[in-house]
Amino acid sequence: MNRKNDNPEKEIEKEGLIKAKKLQKVFVVGGGFARSRLLAVDDVSFQVNKNEIFTLAGESGCGKTTVSKILLGFLEPTQGEVYYRDKNILELQKWEEKKQFMKEVQSIFQNPFETFNPLRKVDSYLHDTAKNFGMNGKKRDKKAVEEALQSVGLGMEEVQGRYPSEFSGGQLQRISIARALITKPSLLVADEPVSMVDASLRMSIVNLFKELRDEYSVSVLYITHDLATAYYVSDRIGIMFRGNIVEMGDVEEVLMNPKHPYTQMLKESIPEADPKKKWTERVSITELETEEYMRKGCKFAGRCPFVEEKCKDFMPEEFFVDGRMVRCWLYEK
C-alpha cells in the first residue's frame, strides 16, 4: 500500500528526526610506505523523517554500515554533521544529553547470534537495558520489559532463564528488537537485520517494522542489500554506491522507475522469485573494486553504459528530477 496516498494527514507530520549533513569518512589503510586513504563515505546527506521507514540500500562495501555507525555515534566522521532533533550529536557534552540520545536512538545488528553473549541468559540483557535507562523502580522496569516483548509477539515466559542457543535466529532477532524497544525509542537503526534470518521468518521481522511505525510511531533506518524487502517495507529509499548516495526519493518511484544507471543495473541484477522472470541477458564483471574507490569522477563511470568524458573527471552534483535526487550528469538540465 502506498501510504502517501492513503494518509494525506500524515504528510503534515513529516519533519526530520535525524539529519546527516555532508558526511565524509576517510579510513587510513596500511602503514608506512603502503599507507593509503580510502574514502568510505563521501558527501552523504539525508534525513529520516518522523513516522517513516527509510532504507539505505547498496552492495557490500558501499559504505552503508559506516553511515549507520556515524549516526549512532560509534564513529566520528572526518567531515560533516549529524543532527538529531536539531541538536548536533557530535557536540553533545553532558552525559545526560548523551544518555537521552542513546535512549531515543536504538540499534539492531546483523547477526543475532553474535549480539548476545552465549553464556548469558537473554532476559538479563532486557533487564539491564531497562535498569540503565532509568525506568524508575523494579516494578516499572519489569512492566517495560514485558510490554516490549509483547510488541514483538513474545512472552516473558518464553524468554525467562533461557540462553541464546535455545532460540532460533528469527526469535533472537525479535528479542534484540524488543531490547531496543524498552527505552521507547523514536528511531531504530537496523543494519541488515534480516540477512541472517531465514526466508520464512524474514517477513515476520519486516512486518514488525511496519507495525512499529504504524502503531508506536517509531521511525526505522533500514539498511539492507535486499531491494525486494526494501520495496515492501520502506517509504523512502537512498541507493548507495561506493560511498555516495546516487539516487534518493520515494521508494515507489526510485525502484519502479530508476533514473541513475547504477540503480537500473542493480534492479536488473536482482533475481526475482518467479520462474517466469528468468534472466536472459548476460552480465560481466571486469572492474576491480579498489579502482572504483580511487576514481575522482563518478565512481560508476567504469561500468556505466552512458559514460561521457565529463563523468571520468568530475563528480556529479545532486540533481533533482521528478521528485527525487539523482547524482548523475545525465540529468544536469
Binding site: 500500500m1 502506498n2 520464512s200 517477513m203 515492501y232 519502479m256 522469485a273
Partner: peptide, 16 residues
C-alpha cells in the same frame, strides 16, 4: 511462497 516479497507488490505478506 506466499511470504516472498516482490518488486511492485506492497500487499501484506504473512510469515510462517
Amino acid at each position: 511462497i506466499a511470504s516472498l516479497p516482490k518488486m511492485g507488490d506492497k500487499t501484506y505478506k504473512p510469515s510462517v
